[in-house]
Design a protein around this nucleic acid. Structure first.
Length: 330
DNA sequence: GATGCGTGGGG
DNA sequence: TCCCCAAGCAT
């Protein structure tokens, strides 16, 4: 039987399974919409193991326990709390959202779908997540997990990273349990993490297998896009002077506010101290660090930083790693 | 609708 | 080593 012919049975099975098997995350213990929003924004394109295991969520909530605190946060402390999580503009949007709640809604988190959706950094998924997880309203959600689960359930072979995503949203809207939206949506995501994993799923353990239409789950979901990677090399310098290291504060773009080893075009010809690779969006970057042959002079935006200051600065993980190794060596 | 935005874990 | 991709959003 298809799931659309028996949504009630499907909901009951999924909710019952989730109540028994659902994992205990901090954001599942709270009904505070702010706490839910923080978790959802952190989890955008970011694995639970990172957010939870490396302590980002707990630290952030301790530092910024409510919208007022976050609304008042400064750039440096905000970015420092986000260091290592990536997609740094999420942090700025989150603070903007907190400011909107304080300013536009008098400090009371909105419950209206349109008003939630209008918060900075809140898209269709995140709005549905806050509505269902915090307020237990029957809003649909579609993230990577749900898209995969529903593609398989419906044996849907259109790419989910194109117009086909509309169908997935429509199914998510039809299926969401009007009686237990929070448990249902949580169950759908939990299912995607555990049984209905990417690649080869564990169909034997699936609580809703009797409603699943596909016979080739390992081929679903279909994705169309493939991004071409561009190779890039950047030449940075490791300059020391009296126990200090020359760093540059980035003033614009994706890493605005972060400190890096300074870049010099001429450095390509200087002796090499080491190289590290990292990926950033569609770029595959080789970061080459050089030893300046002559004393360096701080250019605009650059400063000599004491070693004990560097821990408190915000650095991209690659720069921090490289700097750590360079300081160890010499 | 396509593109830009991070990072780390796992196959 | 390399590739994939993970609780998306804004422009």
């Amino acid at each position: 039987m298809g799931v659309l012919e028996d949504p009630v049975g499907f909901r009951q099975a999924l909710v019952a399974w989730f109540q028994k098997n659902g994992r205990d995350y901090p954001w599942r213990r709270t009904r505070d919409p702010y706490a839910v929003l923080v978790s959802e924004v952190m989890l955008q394109q970011t694995q639970i193991a990172t957010v939870l295991g490396r302590g980002f969520y707990a630290r952030f909530m301790e530092r910024f326990p409510d919208v007022e605190t976050l609304a008042a946060a400064g750039d440096d402390e905000l970015l420092k709390a986000w260091e290592g999580l990536g997609y740094y503009r999420r942090a700025r949007f989150l603070r903007e959202a907190a400011r909107a709640v304080v300013g536009r809604h008098g400090g009371r988190f909105p419950e209206d779908p349109e008003e939630i959706r209008a918060l900075p950094g809140v898209g269709r998924y995140t709005a549905g997540a806050v509505l269902s997880f915090a307020f237990d309203q029957p809003a649909a959600i579609v993230d990577g997990n749900v898209a995969r689960v529903l593609s398989r359930l419906m044996d849907f072979h259109e790419p989910i990273d194109g117009p086909g995503l509309k169908s997935v949203w429509a199914w998510a809207g039809e299926l969401v349990d009007p009686r237990h939206p929070r448990l249902f949506n949580s169950g759908l995501m939990e299912l995607g993490q555990t049984c209905c994993r990417p690649g080869v799923p564990d169909c034997l353990a699936c609580p809703v297998g009797k409603w699943c239409a596909t016979r080739e789950p390992e081929r679903l979901p279909v994705k169309a896009k493939k991004v071409a990677m561009t190779e890039v090399t950047e030449h940075l310098v490791f300059a020391r002077r009296g126990g200090r290291v020359l760093l540059r504060k980035i003033d614009e773009g994706r890493r605005a506010g972060m400190w890096r080893l300074p870049e010099r075009e001429a450095a390509a010809d200087w002796p090499e101290l080491g190289r590290w690779k990292y990926g950033i969006t569609r770029y595959r970057v080789t970061m080459v660090v050089h030893d300046p042959p002559a004393p360096m002079r701080a250019a605009a935006g650059e400063a000599w930083k004491r070693l004990d200051e560097i821990d408190g600065l915000v650095l991209p993980p690659t720069d921090r790693k490289a700097l750590g190794q360079l300081l160890e060596c010499g």
